[in-house]
Design a binder for these strands. Structure first.
Lengths: 340, 340
DNA sequence: GTTAGCACTCTTCACTTCCGAGTGCTAAAT
DNA sequence: ATTTAGCACTCGGAAGTGAAGAGTGCTAAC
């Protein structure tokens, strides 16, 4: 168990290190306002803290640096809610007041605000389709052999894809098909589309001509086969300003990871409700071993819709970042709620 | 004027430096197969070349390195067409054989192939709208106060935007409006849309009710007011592998530039037909002073549609890159031509 | 339990020294 | 008149040295 004084010392060390990125010595601590012990006493406490694994030395006679266990303890027990400045609150409020009405835009602006305010890299996993329903399907032919299929959801999301069709297929067949699809599928939640398509609709289509079936295949492939994730990343370069990323190799591996959107998306998707902090080695991805990833989710009703995350060095301003994520995720939740 | 031997020496120096990124000494040159002179002779030639500004020393007793003037001369007079390997040709052919039918996809894959093959960063300015014409406008209401407007071009490009409308506006008004817009605007080249909207259509709309005019305003704002550029960047991290980018500051300034898509787009847009090479200081952007930017354009008929570019260090494989860009731009041109 | 004092450790920086790669010049060779 | 061999010279980089400074751990005194 940690004594009160040890808690205090640990807190000071971590707070200080987060700001300066420099190892903290006993003398520096003893000089702090809320500390009334001599450096020697601090040294003893620090020796204990080190033995328990909360802090480390960078070399035998250096000041101390928080260990990952230290950060973990700090995050779990030591941080108090951060009072955001009115400037910060304003930036966020401003983002939501532009009266944008599209998922994409709101989410994108959120990512930008977040990375601007923190100087870390923000990653937002766009709204998943849980609650969204099909609003309308349209096919617009461009030429005798090409057409573009458009799918609109009740959330205003639009997917589209161009495709080729054999010239043998009649435009009237396409129209008929669209009608059938709209008849049967409008209002159906997006996640159930696949299922419905393969049972109900496929059956129905079978009863028509060969050509009609072909048309169906094309449209299905165009609209429903690929489901791509939307990942918004803000301030990729911010992380370059952190002194821990002086090494080009680290930068490279981190940037390479960030290009693998699928993996990142899966990682974020797996995060549960509320704020979640992964520190250093706790991260599943190798290239993030020197980073911390803080995630928060936003939701519609009791369905989780997406995830906001901030990626920075383990030496992160946890307190502030967590407050920011809290505010932003609840703003997102509120906004989406007001829409539907 | 440069003697034949000087040309040869200059060529060897640049070829070698492009491969090794190390200063080249006289002895190394004299050992090359096609060189039959002693290192002393080479030294004399190098002294001349340096005096003329084609090569430089990194310090008083170092080997030589190409100057920007040297690269310029190399690009203008010394490079012979590069024979692309069949592997390279295959990768490109493969990209165009996937039967994708959308601008975006083709262009995106092209960017990827290009950066993969070269290990530089590829930037592609998406097809401009010169020849594209409006195919259809649609408005789909999502709720009593929200709707999504969709605009489709004859090239299969889809733009969409959600927007709010006062509840006082009748759905029937919206329908009427869409009909008018489609009546008047289908087939009109996208670049003329603005003009038409502000003259013809505005006039027409004036004769209807107040509400109708309001609806018009909303739709116009949603669909036509913002025109955003599509810029595809491939292999941003590739540039980190180049030894000239060991310095974090350089990386940061370069990446910061690359986030300013507007500026990059303007830069690319200003490039004229054919291959264009900007070496080092020739670049307008400060952060690119250590880079070379090679651009090629692709077109439809005699209208230039967009630009492909590769960004790398000044020590670039000019010959290969130029060949690749040539092939790719003509493939793009051919593909687009076959569509329309 | 706390603190002052001190020896000890380790980094950092400036300053050498040494080596090798490469040049420029001169004089000899072709 | 070129070309080449030879050699002194220059410079960067690696390795080494020493002094300064920051910080620790331990001991003994408070």
């Amino acid at each position: 168990m940690l004594s009160n004084r040890q808690l205090l010392v640990l807190q000071v060390i971590i707070d200080e290190f987060i700001q300066t990125a420099q190892p903290i010595g006993s003398r520096a601590i003893s000089k702090k306002e809320d500390i009334s012990f001599s450096s020697a006493t601090i040294r003893n406490e620090m020796a204990d803290l080190e033995e328990m694994g909360y802090i480390e030395k960078t070399h035998s006679s250096s000041g101390r640096v928080p260990s990952e266990k230290g950060y973990r303890f700090y995050v779990d027990h030591l941080i108090s809610p951060f009072r955001l400045s009115s400037d910060e609150m304003n930036s966020i409020t401003h983002t939501f007041e532009k009266g944008m009405l599209e998922f994409e835009q709101i989410v994108q602006s959120s990512a930008r605000v977040l990375s601007d305010l923190t100087n870390y890299t923000s990653i937002i996993l766009g709204p998943e389709v849980f609650e969204t329903k099909l609003k309308q399907i349209q096919i617009i032919s461009l030429s005798s052999t090409t057409a573009v299929a458009i799918l609109v959801t009740n959330t205003g999301h639009v997917e589209h894809r161009s495709f080729t069709i054999p010239a043998t297929i009649q435009p009237s067949d396409l129209d008929k098909l669209v009608n059938i699809l709209n008849d049967r599928l409008v209002g159906v939640p997006i996640i159930q589309l696949h299922e419905k398509l393969y049972t109900e609709i496929a059956e129905l289509v079978n009863s028509y001509t060969q050509d009609f079936e072909t048309a169906y295949k094309y449209v299905k492939a165009a609209l429903f086969d690929e489901q791509h994730v939307k990942l918004y990343v803000g301030g990729k370069t911010n992380i370059l300003m952190q002194p821990e990323f002086k090494d080009v190799e680290k930068i490279r591996s981190l940037f390479t990871i960030m290009e693998k959107e699928d993996e990142i998306a899966n990682l974020l998707r797996s995060s549960t409700g509320g704020i979640n902090v992964s520190i250093g080695q706790e991260n599943k991805m190798d290239a993030m071993q020197d980073c911390s990833l803080i995630t928060a989710t936003y939701s519609l009703g009791d369905k989780q819709m997406g995830t906001i995350a901030l990626l920075g060095p383990t030496r992160m301003e946890y307190s502030r970042v967590i407050s920011l994520l809290n505010v932003l995720s609840s703003r997102l939740t509120k906004t989406f709620h007001s829409w539907y």
